[in-house]
Design a protein around this nucleic acid. Structure first.
Length: 755
DNA sequence: TACATACAC
DNA sequence: AATGGTGTATGTA
């Protein structure tokens, strides 16, 4: 999971381009629940009876829309290994009944409606294609298919190994009493793996636990334990090494092996290799796995699923075999074609199998982007991923948490501070420094937003991250959130992807060698094996310790209001919302100069681009902005804003503005914590720090800036700052200063903007 | 570059 | 009562 080295070459390009076609007005009109009733006209009588029973109980509504659950499309109702005898209709109904009316459900319906709209517009576009158009695109498609054909490579033998119900199997290994009983790894909110007994009930990975409970009341839940999974994963990988020292780990439980050489050297068939490998994995771990063998990775992956669990399937490296295999293959089996793409291809073009991808090639070339069409055509031809994979470096690192939705600003800032701590710790572990910071938010209504800044310098410290993250978050308030996440990308190249595991040191030498052939990579056998630091959270872990802050009165939590932090006569305090008081309290000199000095140092180390030079100017002399009044670069201005705030507030000096009286009472808000509550006090400090950052920013845009202005006698600078922040607010349209956020409107507005 | 989506596991 | 976390790719403006 989340392995940065995993193979991604065969991913389907997204279909966003379709959005070009969408007319927002029609979209808005149609988005009310239309029910999608034309689906499933031919239903079994048994279902109908159940239906009538339901009507009796519930009365009404289902008369207009006989089987509403059929239009609720979820990822986990799709056929998967071990789900043969499952009553899908029943599962679907239960899932629907459990979901109906929830915020999650409503959001899913909005997304569904949007996709239906996309589909409709693609239909229109299809209908508008003239005979001339079609013959043109047919030629285009033919040409591209024949170009693909020329590059077909049947010389490699790829094997995909996939552990059977991996987490569940591992848990059963450590607690054999679970054997034979329906069991799921995960919690009430989310299941990561279900064993085969549970799958008989329709319980599946990615299904919320509480729904699984309904489907299978006997279901036993086991919390995730990544230490165990990593341990067993390493055992399997030791086996993989014997067959391909450069195997590609796709996740803890999946890998791709190029077994061309082993087969040749040992003079045995790929079938034999697969059998041997699987039994060796079983010997070493006591776990079963399935394998697929084919001429490329994409097909090998499909094949490993065919005789799952504890089975294998070999597709010969012969063109006709491949073509035949692919022709009847449902597109959804292909990695990269998910729920949405399947839906679109089926409803717009009537495509269900890979063969039909080729048959409809002209339409695909007419309606999709070059790379998307290319992908579809290559899938139709049975191609995908034969070449030796390049070493891939991590491109981003992130941390996000779900919590019970809240609008409370102090709480939100506290959550943010917690994320920051986790992220910066992870970055430190990996030695990563990045310059793009992306804030991810999920509103109480499940709308996801991201907001990003790219900085002039590379950051990794929690102070730096918190500073910029707070600004990003601030622009979104007020809003009710259920998730906050942060991602850092655009790494400093020296550090990017440098493995933290010493056994992976050879990665660098591999790169340096300049020879990307697999031979030279032989010594980096543990490639991708160090993915132990994943945090698949279970419920307990996701619910952060709110306890200590619940005592904080609401007013305290909102630094934008005047009734902010209660005044405490404490000379350490640097900030207050009391305008009259600010001037006499402010003691900037030492921290300010120190902060600037530090930053100058940092900038000098990374004067990479013109932009950076600009930034240096901004940092060294804020009057820079005076000379560039006509220059409207929001980014620069924003950065200046940030940097100057920083100068004022040189962070990580939380204890300068509050302290623990007698070691247990917060000087600011009076919260009392026993001396032994070390972590809680740290959290509390984080909270005040974040709060203070917010105050500072707020202040620099308005009241507090009055102080700076007088102090430094730079009136024009003040104006520029204010206008910069104004522009910023304007730019981030959906950020609500309008008080209550109306998700559905935002949704439509955004669609509209995309046109 | 910023943002939204889709996808995988 | 209740629908995760980490990471990649692509398209568009």
């Amino acid at each position: 999971m989340g392995d940065p080295h995993h193979c991604t070459e065969e991913r389907a390009p997204s279909l966003d381009r379709v959005e070009e076609l969408c007319c927002a007005l029609e979209l808005a009109r149609d988005l009310h629940l239309t029910g999608d009733g034309e689906e499933g006209i031919h239903e079994r009588e048994r279902v109908r009876e159940r239906e009538r029973e339901m009507e009796k109980i519930e009365g009404s509504s289902s008369i207009e829309n006989p089987r509403p659950w059929q239009s609720y499309h979820t990822v986990y109702t799709n056929a998967k290994a071990g789900m043969d005898g499952v009553d899908k209709e029943k599962v679907q109904r239960v899932v629907y009944e459990m979901s109906k009316g929830s915020k999650y459900f409503e959001n899913e319906e909005r997304k569904e409606a949007f996709i239906r709209q996309k589909i409709e517009h693609m239909h229109v576009r299809c209908a508008k294609l003239t005979a001339a158009d079609l013959s043109h695109y047919q030629k285009v498609a033919d040409k591209r298919v024949s170009e693909l054909e020329v590059r077909r490579d049947l010389s490699r033998i790829w094997l995909h190994v996939d552990m059977d119900a991996f987490y569940a199997a591992v848990e059963t290994l450590s607690d054999p009493s679970l054997k034979g009983k329906p069991m799921a790894v995960g919690g009430m909110s989310m299941i990561s793996t279900a064993n085969y007994e549970a799958r008989k009930f329709g319980v599946r990975a990615a299904m919320p636990g509480f729904i699984a409970c309904k489907l299978c009341p006997e279901l036993i839940f086991v919390p995730t334990d990544f230490k165990k999974y990593n341990y067993y994963s390493d055992l399997t990988r030791k086996v993989f090494c014997d067959y391909d020292p450069n195997f590609m780990a796709a996740s803890l439980d999946e890998a791709y092996l190029d077994i061309t050489e082993v087969c040749r050297e040992r003079g045995i068939t790929s079938t034999e290799i697969a059998e041997e490998l699987r039994s060796r994995v079983y010997e070493e771990t006591g776990l079963t796995c399935s394998a697929g063998v084919a001429a490329n990775r994409l097909l090998a992956k499909v094949c490993s699923d065919i005789n799952k669990p504890n089975g294998q399937f070999v597709l010969p490296n012969e063109r006709m075999a491949v073509i035949t295999f692919v022709s009847s293959l449902p597109i959804r089996k292909i990695g990269g074609i998910g729920k949405v793409t399947e839906h679109i291809l089926r409803d717009v073009f009537g495509i269900n199998t890979c063969e039909e991808l080729l048959q409809k090639g002209s339409f695909l070339c007419a309606l999709f982007s070059h790379s998307t069409a290319e992908f579809f055509l290559s899938v139709g031809s049975g191609l995908g991923g034969t070449e030796t994979p390049q070493v891939r470096f991590r491109k981003s690192i992130s941390s996000e948490r779900t919590f019970s939705a809240t609008e409370n600003k102090a709480l939100l800032y506290q959550k943010l501070a917690e994320i920051v701590e986790m992220l910066s710790a992870d970055m430190q572990k990996e030695g990563l420094h990045g310059r793009t910071l992306t804030l991810k938010l999920k509103t109480a209504s499940f709308e996801v937003r991201t907001r990003a800044v790219t900085l002039q310098k590379y950051i990794c410290s929690s102070e730096d991250i918190l500073k910029h993250a707070s600004l990003l978050l601030k622009a979104e308030l007020p809003v009710s959130l259920r998730l906050i996440g942060l991602r850092v990308s655009q790494f400093n190249e020296d550090k990017a992807g440098a493995p933290s595991d010493p056994t992976q040191r050879t990665l660098t030498s591999f790169i340096m060698s300049g020879d990307a052939s697999r031979k030279n990579a032989a010594d980096q056998s543990s490639l991708g094996s160090d993915i132990s630091d994943h945090h698949f959270m279970d419920d307990q872990e996701t619910s952060c310790s709110l306890g200590i802050h619940e005592t904080i009165p609401d007013e305290v939590s909102d630094p934008f209001e005047n009734n902010c932090v209660p005044n405490v006569d404490d000379q350490n305090r640097t900030f207050s919302d009391n305008v009259g008081e600010v001037e006499k309290i402010h003691q900037p000199s030492s921290s300010e100069t120190a902060g600037k000095g530090n930053k100058l140092d940092m900038v000098r180390h990374t004067p990479k681009s013109h932009q950076n030079e600009l930034s240096e100017l901004v940092e060294t002399d804020s009057s820079f902005l005076l000379q560039h009044e006509g220059n409207n670069h929001d980014r620069v201005e924003e950065e200046a804003n940030i940097l100057n705030n920083e100068a004022v507030s040189s962070s990580n000096q939380t204890d300068q503005f509050f302290c623990w009286v007698d070691n247990y009472k917060c000087s600011l808000c009076g919260t009392e914590l026993p001396p032994t509550f070390v972590e809680e006090r740290q959290e509390h400090s984080d909270f005040h720090l974040a709060e203070r950052l917010q105050e500072e920013d707020s202040g620099s845009n308005s009241r507090f800036h009055t102080l700076r202005q007088r102090k430094f006698a730079r009136p024009v600078y003040k104006d520029r700052t204010a206008s910069a922040s104004h522009k910023k607010r304007k730019k981030l349209k959906s950020s609500g200063k309008e008080g209550t956020h109306i998700p559905i409107d935002t949704f439509f507005v955004k669609s509209n903007q995309n046109l």
